[in-house]
Structures are given as structure tokens and as C-alpha cells.
């Protein structure tokens, strides 16, 4: 927990510096009061102070008990990586491929990866999630979900 907090503080400090630098091009004050750069200036300073506080606390303070959360095992890491990659793939594919096929592939990939491997169950959920949801949106809510190059 100590090293993790140190790293978190460091990351926040870097983020504060980045946000401060990005905010420099914005005008700090206008004739009628704070400009768009006013809050970035002060809040990035505050964030840097808080980050330093978190780092100091990690170095000087007594050790903290880690939060009561599941441990990160290799299996969890692999599943997490697949989940993240799948959401990224959805973001890339949903417009060219259409909602139905994208959601079908997402469910067909995630279900077995996360530990549900009954073929019929996976197929049923994937089809219902991809095509059933789209039908629901189309017919009941009158909201078209994207149709891909395939025409579905």
C-alpha cells in the first residue's frame, strides 16, 4: 500500500503539472472576473499540494491496511486485459460493423473469457444481446442503433 500510494501521489503530481501547463494558454483574468485559465491555475496548484501530501503521508505516516478488495492474480490480469481490449474494440467497430454484430462479438468474446463456457448459453446470450437489444431499441423506443456496412 505504501509504494502504491507513493506512485499514486507521483502520478497526480505529474497530472497536476500537465494540467497546469495546458492551462497556461488560457487567459487568467477578464475585465469581469476570472477567465477560463483562472480555475486551472489554482486547482492544479491544489492538486499538486494534495499529491505531495499523499506522498508525504506514505513516507512518514504509519502503514495503512490495504482496502478490502480482491487480489490481482494473473488470471484476473488476463481477464481485465481482455475486457479492456474488448471495450476498445467495440469503440472501433461499432460504427463500421453495426451494433448487432459488434455486441454479438463482444458477448461471444467476454462470456467465455470471464468463465462462462456453455456453448448454447453463450450463443443464446450473444444473439439476444446483439439482435434482441437492437430490435427492442428499434421497435419499442424508436431509436435506431447503428447499422454497419453489411447492412445489419
Amino acid at each position: 500500500m505504501r509504494n502504491a500510494q507513493l506512485a499514486a501521489g507521483g502520478a497526480l503530481l505529474a497530472l497536476a503539472a500537465f494540467l497546469f501547463a495546458q492551462g497556461q494558454s488560457l487567459s487568467y483574468y477578464t475585465p469581469l472576473g476570472p477567465g477560463p485559465g483562472f480555475f486551472p491555475y489554482w486547482l492544479s496548484g491544489l492538486l499538486a499540494l494534495l499529491a505531495l501530501g499523499i506522498m508525504l503521508r506514505a513516507i512518514l505516516g504509519p502503514p495503512e491496511a490495504p482496502p478490502n478488495e480482491p487480489p490481482l492474480t494473473p488470471r484476473v490480469a488476463w481477464r481485465g486485459a481482455v475486457a479492456i481490449a474488448t471495450i476498445g474494440a467495440v469503440a472501433l467497430l461499432i460504427d463500421p460493423l453495426g451494433f448487432r454484430l459488434t455486441m454479438l462479438c463482444m458477448l461471444a468474446t467476454l462470456l467465455p473469457t470471464l468463465g462462462y463456457r456453455r456453448p448454447l448459453g453463450v450463443a443464446a446470450i450473444a444473439v439476444a444481446g446483439g439482435f434482441g437489444t437492437a430490435e427492442l431499441f428499434q421497435r419499442v423506443l424508436a431509436t435506431p442503433l447503428p447499422v454497419g456496412l453489411l447492412g445489419i
Binding site: 475486457a83 474488448t86 471495450i87 455486441m103 463482444m106 458477448l107 467476454l110 462470456l111 470471464l114 468463465g115 462462462y116 448459453g121 446470450i125 444481446g129
Partner: peptide
């Protein structure tokens, strides 16, 4: 429902 299915449904 099985844990894996629930997690997948949440993401979907």
C-alpha cells in the same frame, strides 16, 4: 445468474 454472465451483462 452465474458471476461471469453478470459481469458480462454489466459491461454490455
Amino acid at each position: 445468474v452465474p458471476h461471469a454472465v453478470l459481469m458480462t451483462i454489466i459491461l454490455a
